Amino acid sequence: MSRFCYVNGRYLPHANGMVHIEDRGYQLADGIYEVVPIYHGKLVDMEQHLDRLAYSLGELRIAPPMERNALRLVMRELIARNGVTNGLIYLQVTRGVAPREHKFPKKTKSSLVMTTKKTKPVAPELLEKGAAIITQRDLRWLRRDIKSIGLLPNVLAKQAASEQGAFEAWLVDDAGYITEGSSTNAWIVKAGPDGKARELITRPLGHDILGGITRRGVVDLAKEQGLNLVQRPFSLEEALSAAEAFQTSSSAFVLPVTSIDGKAIGDGKPGPMTMRLREIYCRYAEQGE
Rank of each mutant, 00 (worst) to 15 (best):
R24I: 06
D30H: 12
G41F: 08
V35K: 08
E34N: 03
E34I: 04
G31P: 04
H20Y: 08
V36F: 13
E47K: 14
Y33E: 00
Q48F: 06
M46I: 11
E47I: 09
Y26S: 01
D45T: 08
L43N: 12
I21E: 09
V36M: 13
D45M: 14
L28D: 09
Y39C: 03
Q27D: 05
M46F: 08
I38N: 10
Y33H: 07
M18R: 15
Y33N: 01
M18K: 14
E22A: 11
I32L: 12
L43F: 15
Q27C: 13
V36R: 08
D23I: 07
P37V: 09
H40L: 11
R24V: 07
H40R: 14
I21Y: 02
G41E: 10
I38P: 12
E34S: 07
K42N: 14
E47N: 15
G41Y: 07
G25M: 01
Q48P: 00
Y39L: 01
G41T: 09
Y33P: 01
Y26H: 01
D30I: 09
M46H: 02
M46E: 14
E34H: 04
L28S: 06
I38W: 06
V35H: 04
R24A: 04
G25W: 00
L43C: 15
I38R: 10
I32T: 10
E47R: 13
H40V: 01
Y39A: 02
A29L: 05
Q27L: 15
G41W: 08
V19A: 02
V35G: 10
K42H: 14
V36E: 11
Y39F: 15
Y26D: 00
A29F: 09
K42V: 11
Q48H: 12
E22D: 14
I38E: 06
L28Q: 13
Y39P: 05
G31N: 03
G31D: 05
D45Y: 11
Y26G: 00
G31S: 05
I32P: 03
M18L: 04
G25Y: 00
E47A: 14
K42Q: 15
M18G: 00
M46G: 00
E22S: 09
V44E: 12
D23Q: 07
L43D: 14
E47T: 11
Y39D: 02
M46Q: 05
G25D: 00
Y26V: 01
M46C: 04
D45N: 14
G41C: 08
H40M: 08
K42C: 13
A29K: 04
V36A: 10
D45F: 13
M18Y: 03
E47W: 10
E47Q: 15
V19D: 01
M46R: 14
V35I: 13
D23F: 06
D45C: 12
P37E: 01
Q48T: 11
K42P: 10
Q27F: 08
I38F: 06
M46D: 02
